[in-house]
Amino acid sequence: MRLSYPSNVKIIQVPCSGRVDILHLLRAIEDGADGVYVAGCLEGECHFLTGNVKAKKKVQYVKNVLEEIGIEPERVEMFNLSSGEGPRFAEIAKEMVERIKELGPSPVKIQKAA
């Protein structure tokens, strides 16, 4: 499968979405990312039982924090898909890029550039 996904998505591999931490997500925003999302396994299919469920809660935490300080929580998202779903992976990447484009650049980045 030679599936293409938007080149502006930078992929960071982790052993399990459960490894993703609140700080990882926040630091990405802090450093100027316009959006950040976690792609975890389907719920109920985590090799480590609940890694993806934990990731989902951390994503929600970051969404709440962003909302509190006036940044669109939609910039952060959690997706679930199985490792065999290559097309879905590409689809999600496009979907997220579309969403962020609609939101525009992160206010953090705008100010940093100014």
């Binding site: 700080l23 926040l26 802090e30 924090v65 300080i69 006036g70 940044i71 206010p107 953090v108 100010q111």
Partner: peptide
């Protein structure tokens, strides 16, 4: 330590957004 890190990052984001790093 953990929560200190989270708060630090959050405050930095909030202030960066306002252009007052």
């Amino acid at each position: 330590n953990k929560e200190v890190g989270i708060l630090a990052s959050t405050l930095k984001i909030a202030r960066a957004k306002e252009g007052r790093p």
